[in-house]
Design a protein around this nucleic acid. Structure first.
Lengths: 345, 345
DNA sequence: GTAATTAGGACAATCGTTTGCGCAAATTAA
DNA sequence: TTAATTTGCGCAAACGATTGTCCTAATTAC
């Protein structure tokens, strides 16, 4: 009825044994410390009966660790990150770790605060999909002794272990596909400029152009956020000038961007792929079910959770396996109906 | 370089003042306890310089609270819950609370474990969208002194404060709309049977039939989970027998169910709304962009975060406002193109 | 019968904060 | 000059668990 306050000490009192004994029994160290069967039985049973729950805070203080992992993502409503979070959480649970989730909202201040917070909670490690523009605070965190794993948005050559996707190849393949279908005027709607996935995807785009001897036009790279609104705004502009610019295809760098683009195109009465073609990063459950089934680059992988936890464990010296090795996961182009084959002049 | 171990004590040592003083200064109680300006200055500055971070675990132990709120949702990859989580997190941050997120995966065992875990972390409160079939463990948690707020899936008359949507009216309105368009054979693809949203939505469906003197046919209520697969499987069966059953419309109880339905219908070559009409619970960003723009019942509300935190604060006696009062948020029917007006015989 | 060993468990320090109480020096009052 | 205040801060006990060390009684060895 009242605040459940059954502690190891209150039990010790009523049972007439020491807290030491109880602690040991409850941690399965009974035999090792030669506690008699009777006592073990007694303690276990009453702990159960009284519904004893160890106070993790006290435990954490003594042990200077928390059996907890911090996870920071820019936006949990972005389906890609939600899937990621889910995978990580499931895997963490397997190893008896729990997840402290933070949304950074793509705001570097919040990201920094979140890291500080997680550290003050003595998390055993942090998995983060950072904003990705500044690495300093991450390097600091690592120096402070917090095991760290970067996901998706990474920094290379900075001793910050990471898991990413092969954004470059993904983009290259997608744009080659567009080009193979006769597209030369391809607009690239990008996300946060300067972040690694963005850089690499844009580079893949450029590389595809180069390989096919299509001159690169900087004005065809537009946008500045992985958001619906960014996609929407860019697509609105594109729509207005379609006649002039002769753009025939859009390469979108993220699922939320794409939804914004689709919305705008729909409003403007521009058909896909008749009037404009589109390929988008991030496969989604509904990609297939949109008004035009979307060709996408899928780069979600069930292994994200597994791998990131493994990399953390390695840093904590808790895994048999070798030291953290950065990993780059493969992406895959899924072809549907959003690209039109146009006549090659 | 090494593990950041600047504590209040290490600072006390090097500054030649007591830990008490430091603690007070850092908590803004300097003036109140007549610490001199000089000392206050000294402490604040060095704390900053040394990048001191309070150990929340120690703090939590002493204070028997953690400034942390637990959030349990069935599935964070369900966009509805992701939005919910986002809203709650943002609101929590405003009040200097942090969120401990758990996925129950609609598994009652995990749900129970998560509650125990959160309690052992001394969370100051729990916001939960429970499986919704058993209330006992929730009642226990509340008795144990943990402030609790139920979201979406609720239990009435059990002293468990809740925030829900007016599922009944939403369903009623949606089905009335279908009926108004001439539909009489409406199949209802439901989620987890026995949960409050499911019950109420089904009841709304029945009520609409009743009001319009359409006999209720139990065999038209199918399915058993708020999942893609459930929708998919149900829709497959529906498709096979469409000629026989003369079903003209589907009422889907959740966004993931709906995606499954759409997938199956697409595979079977059944057109919406020409061959079958559909109305679905849960508005999504992409509802408008599907191969047939979907008529939905929107019941997401920006106030979920605000309200749930408020209700928690009230229970903790930290809010000026009155005692927790259950709230039911309005839903809204959004009409698009997924319902065909059929001739009334 | 005595010494050595083993069985069974307790003491007390520790983790880093917070906080009720107390206390000396400095200042003011009378 | 002495007493009363005020200023400025410190002591030490919590909070609940873990763990290295130590201790007593019972058993075994010889």
């Amino acid at each position: 009825m009242k605040n459940n306050s059954v502690t190891i000490q209150s039990m010790a009192q009523s049972l007439g044994v020491s807290v030491t004994t109880i602690s040991r029994v409850l941690n399965g160290l009974g035999e090792q410390f030669r506690i008699s069967k009777k006592t073990i039985e007694l303690v276990t049973v009453t702990a159960h009966k009284l519904n004893y729950k160890p106070n993790n805070i006290a435990k954490g203080l003594r042990l200077k660790k928390s059996s907890t992992i911090g996870l920071i993502v820019p936006d949990i409503t972005n389906a890609w990150f939600a899937q990621l979070a889910m995978g990580i959480e499931k895997e963490a649970r397997k190893h008896h770790y729990n997840i402290f989730l933070c949304n950074s909202d793509d705001d570097i201040k919040i990201e920094k605060k979140s890291i500080a917070l997680l550290q003050s909670w003595m998390v055993d490690g942090i998995i983060i999909a950072p904003i990705g523009l500044e690495p300093e605070h991450l390097i600091d965190a690592k120096k402070n002794g917090t095991p760290l794993v970067l996901i998706d948005r990474i920094f290379e050559g900075m001793d910050l272990p990471y898991i990413s996707s092969n954004d470059f190849e993904g983009a290259l393949e997608a744009n080659q596909y567009l080009i193979d279908n006769g597209h030369k005027k391809i607009v690239c709607v990008q996300g946060i400029v300067g972040t690694s996935p963005n850089n690499k995807r844009v580079n893949g785009y450029k590389q595809a152009l180069k390989k096919n001897k299509i001159p690169f036009d900087p004005s065809l790279v537009v946008g500045d956020a992985f958001s619906f609104n960014n996609g929407y705004n860019c697509a609105k502009k594109i729509s207005k000038n379609l006649a002039k610019t002769k753009i025939t295809a859009i390469f979108s760098l993220g699922n939320q961007i794409t939804l914004g683009i689709l919305k705008a195109l729909k409003e403007e009465g521009i058909r896909i792929p008749e009037d404009i073609s589109i390929v988008s990063f991030d496969e989604q459950v509904y990609s297939d079910l949109l008004f035009t089934p979307l060709s996408t680059i899928s780069h979600m992988n069930d292994n994200f959770g597994d791998l990131s936890i493994q990399m953390l464990l390695q840093q904590m010296g808790k895994s048999k396996k070798a030291k953290p090795k950065d990993v780059v996961l493969k992406s895959k182009l899924i072809i549907r109906d959003s690209v039109k084959k146009i006549a090659i002049l």
